[in-house]
Write a protein that binds this DNA or RNA. Structure first.
Lengths: 229, 229
DNA sequence: TTTAAAAACTGACAAGTGTCATCTTTTGTC
DNA sequence: GACAAAAGATGACACTTGTCAGTTTTTAAA
């Protein structure tokens, strides 16, 4: 039997924590749990979303296809984050696609349960608003990084971001394993350029690799690099 | 005597339209109208905002200083837009600076009037949320443009953006007059590169200039350029 | 009108980055 | 374990873009 939202720790991290008991009960009754395999698509760009996805475990990439045919990863979402919130709120089709980067567990919550609470519970609405304000600030930061930093600086930053937000395993390797192509799509560069710079970092002893796993050896130096020194 | 918010058409364009009569009255009683000269700073990056600014006329640029010392213009805000909303909602210092690009008229609304309404009126909160969802989508689009388009494509797009959002005067010149440096800061490039590409557009007959005023002659061709053809 | 400062412009050049082609290694499946 | 497919890696090269240095034009103030 599936866990109920009332007992789900994940909700502490997102706006659902501002729901009343009754509202949460309604959400829990209407939600559907899903397991999603690495590589599987959760929703496509342009798709109409009939609800949001609350991530219980695993990591997904939110990407947008650029006119030249390349995917730009706009955000990596993990435990506690809610996907599709923006589209449901704006009543627009999704502007992003979501794909699992690792095996995932998530709950689909039909939009009715969300929208009705948005209309009735200002605390919840405010909480969603605060999360979106946070996302917007991050997006502003990304814009500046994209336009003003070199590819090398952005890759250094992406590595540190992965370390700080997804952690490391016992051996010191980044817990989040991304393909070179995904990393390239995060920083907005060609896969080859990304590989080249990672090789350079490796030669300089800033990182080490084992298969596609990567470990950061000199976080401080990478930080300096990311900051343009 | 100053106009009251209740009678101000500008509010139709932003979330204030979802306020009740009483709430709007409170805002109107506490607001302060200000005229701001071109070039004047409205607020700085990192500054604590004690309220929001509702733009009644004129245009302002919202920018963020990048580590390398260049300003990146993240958004151009005009009539009806509310500045500082994100920071007030998130209870953070501003992540952007705001500077007048033309002479402006705006109203400062103390944050108390906004925050108390956010807590009490879900319609208002929802409306603010929808506006922020819209801003977030636009930010996503900007991220993709920045990372995937060439400088030339971005400049073509910026010109079309200026035409579509700020219009043209009788002679067909863009109503919004930006310096070359500002345009460069919008598209995230060096001023010299921006000038060079504008000169090229001029040679190709896509635009014409008169002082710092610019007119678009071949919108269609610029659009193709912006789309990567 | 004169003058100084700011903005616009241009050329030369180097560095950064993307593309294409090719090769090697890893991964997953039968 | 063998094989095919995917991912990673590397070199060559051209093109884009930023930087620096300097000139011209425009703007604003005296």
């Amino acid at each position: 039997m599936e866990e109920r939202c009332e007992n789900c720790i994940v909700r502490k991290f997102n706006a659902l924590r501002a729901m009343s008991k009754d509202e949460l009960k309604a959400v829990s009754d209407s939600k559907v749990s899903r397991k999603i395999k690495k590589g599987e698509v959760i929703f496509e760009e342009g798709e109409k979303l009939n609800g949001v996805y609350c991530v219980r475990g695993g990591v997904s990439k939110l990407a947008k296809l650029s006119p030249n045919g390349k995917d730009q990863i706009v955000k990596l979402a993990t435990k506690g984050e809610v996907l599709g919130q923006r589209s449901v709120v704006a009543e627009e089709n999704s502007n992003l696609s979501a794909t699992a980067v690792s095996d995932m567990e998530m709950c689909f919550i039909p939009k009715e349960a969300i929208v009705s609470t948005l209309h009735k519970n200002p605390d919840f609405t405010y909480e969603v608003l605060r999360h979106m304000a946070h996302d917007l600030r991050e997006a502003d930061d990304v814009i500046v990084n994209m336009s003003q930093k070199t590819v090398k600086e952005r890759i250094a930053e992406a590595l540190l971001y992965m370390m700080n937000n997804f952690g490391e395993d016992q051996e010191g390797y980044l817990a989040l394993v991304l393909s070179r192509e995904d990393i390239a799509n995060v920083v907005g560069t060609a896969t080859e350029s990304c590989i080249r710079i990672l090789s350079e970092f490796k030669k300089q002893g800033l990182i080490k690799t084992s298969g596609k796993r990567m470990a950061i050896l000199e976080a401080r130096k990478l930080q300096d690099l990311a900051d343009g020194f």
